[in-house]
Design a protein around this nucleic acid. Structure first.
Lengths: 214, 214
DNA sequence: TAGATTGTTAATCGATTAACAATC
DNA sequence: TAGATTGTTAATCGATTAACAATC
């Protein structure tokens, strides 16, 4: 049974809805409510959850705290993940301040890398920048599991290869480039240019009648 | 005929490949080459292009410059787009420096908005921050077509509503929140937390045997 | 019990893959 | 002409939607 990528993305949204329900002091919810908030059908919510088991009570609905906890576990958020950033240009520096990093959070920023000698040794967010060639050693010593690529497109592949060789299996690629990795490595991408260009596609007069799939 | 969202994303990748071919001085290419670079099948490349017309020559392939130009037009990149940023926290400030903004580029940053009185009037990238309530006037006067939301999740919906009321029809949402807009408005999202969480899902031991759809 | 809402199976829809005829 | 490669139609695959039986 293969879980669709879209299902994983939606689980993340459901979890946020559950978290805000919990903050609001609610203890019970339904596939209908979750669907409304996530802008998907109740069918979709139940189908998505069904990939992973049974989480609710027929006739009653879901327990907010319990479902939240179980989705958290499914998403691998029950533990902490050591993360590094490669490339400390403007984007890399901005990522250091990403609010998802913190002692109470799942993601810990533990190392910074660059190849620019002017940057090596500089500190950002309390971490000194190391040279890329320290990657293998640092990944092993600091037990780094995730790498963020914040270098120009032209060196993204090189950095990805170095991360993989150092033993990293999860990469978040911010460079506007397709990177090639072995099958056991997972890559996610976040690309501002591409997002803007999708917008202009849909806004363009010629495509005014075309809507993105829901 | 409805164009799949995935097709639009792939066109963007093909365009990048074509641009780098052009830089390398190549004048001709094939669906096989484009597919290799974009990590999709040659079938997929031809099918994607077929949504928009005929671009190649049987037996020969595609002209790099011409196909690039035509994809650019399809994506609405033949013109320029005035853009604003709402929210000048760390993320908003980093976006000001986004290299896709520039006089030679398709995207022009023309206004900044925030509600924090400590930020109003401050300059970033040569632009003074205005109060959100200037949105309607500024959108009209500066002919702003695109808005980037860089505020916390808790105020994302409010800002989206304000952007829509000001007349903006294309929104790039960086806040980790689902926003609701009228049908004629397009929303793209870029969400670092969600990308990281998809990675941890796939990396988690329990899901180690599950691969994302290609 | 009756009403509500889940979990699951079946039907539909859409996208991807494959095959091949067209043609340079 | 023969080889190459597109454009397009057909087949397959997968995801979404719908329906409904299970059950609290």
């Amino acid at each position: 049974m293969n879980v669709p990528t879209a299902t994983v993305s939606r689980l993340i949204v459901y979890l946020r809805v559950l978290d805000s329900l919990a903050s609001a002091g609610k203890s019970r919810t339904s596939s209908e409510y979750l669907g409304n908030e996530a802008q998907v059908s109740p069918f979709q919510v139940r189908k998505d959850l069904a990939y992973f088991g049974r989480f609710g009570t027929r006739g009653i609905g879901y327990d907010v705290a319990e479902l939240g906890q179980r989705i958290r576990t499914i998403l691998g958020l029950g533990r902490s993940w050591n993360t590094c950033i490669v490339g400390l240009g403007r984007l890399g520096q901005a990522l250091v301040d990403y609010p998802g990093f913190g002692p109470q959070k799942e993601f810990h920023l533990v190392a910074l890398f660059d190849t620019d000698s002017a940057k090596i040794g500089k500190c950002f967010g309390g971490l000194a920048v190391r040279h890329n060639w320290e990657l293998p050693q640092a990944v092993a010593e600091l037990n780094i599991q995730l790498g963020m690529i914040a270098v120009p497109a032209s060196s993204a592949q090189e950095v990805a290869t170095a991360l993989v060789q150092a033993g990293i299996r999860g990469i978040l690629n911010f460079a506007p480039a397709v990177i090639e990795v072995p099958l056991h490595v997972f890559v996610e991408k976040t690309d501002v240019s591409a997002a803007l260009e999708r917008l202009t596609f849909y806004l363009s007069a010629a495509q005014a009648d075309r809507r993105p799939a829901p």
